[in-house]
């Protein structure tokens, strides 16, 4: 199915997400990250952080837990969510984030390429006190249906 390019630039959602310490711990455990700076506030402080920081990919949790309608909204755009694959994920870091930080997250449709393969890029800006802390670009692709040649 061809996707309409009308959605380019559209804001899909803006939602709050507070970084919970236990959620970060669960994430660290799931990815096998054992470095003391993420687990022990004292070790973090010795390394120059004010508390245990979040690891470099934790913000994906803010997106999926903070915006559970993401899948439904992708479907509304005409994306076949049963067949989509994650193609790219690009992060730019502006500030370190910590447990307790109250984020405002803004998701927009950054780009749509429609053709044999539909490709959509979503931009999520994670703001703390109005200032971007992390910018994320997620590109998904819907491969063509098997042609049964």
């Amino acid at each position: 199915m061809a996707l309409s390019k009308e959605s380019i630039g559209k804001q899909l959602s803006t939602f709050p997400f507070t970084i919970e310490r236990v959620k970060v711990k669960e994430f660290l455990s799931a990815i096998g990250e054992t470095s003391p700076i993420f687990h022990d506030p004292q070790a973090a402080q010795q390394a120059g952080f004010r508390d245990t920081p979040i690891p470099p990919t934790f913000q994906t949790s803010a997106l999926f837990w903070g915006y559970p309608d993401f899948w439904k909204d992708m479907q509304s755009m005409g994306i076949d969510i049963k067949r989509l694959l994650h193609l790219k994920e690009e992060y730019t870091y502006h500030q370190t984030l910590y447990p307790g930080d109250a984020l405002q997250c803004r998701v927009t449709v950054a780009d749509i390429k429609s053709g044999k393969m539909d490709m959509v890029t979503f931009e999520t800006v994670f703001l703390r006190e109005g200032t971007p802390a992390i910018t994320a670009l997620m590109t998904i692709v819907v491969p063509p249906e098997a042609s049964h040649e």
Binding site: K88, E89, E90, Y91, T92, L137
Partner: peptide, 17 residues
């Protein structure tokens, strides 16, 4: 990455699957 560099030095991290 974190085996070799401090988190605070990380400026961007882009991946392709």
């Amino acid at each position: 990455l974190l085996q070799h560099f401090p988190l605070s030095a990380l400026s961007s991290f882009s991946s392709k699957f």
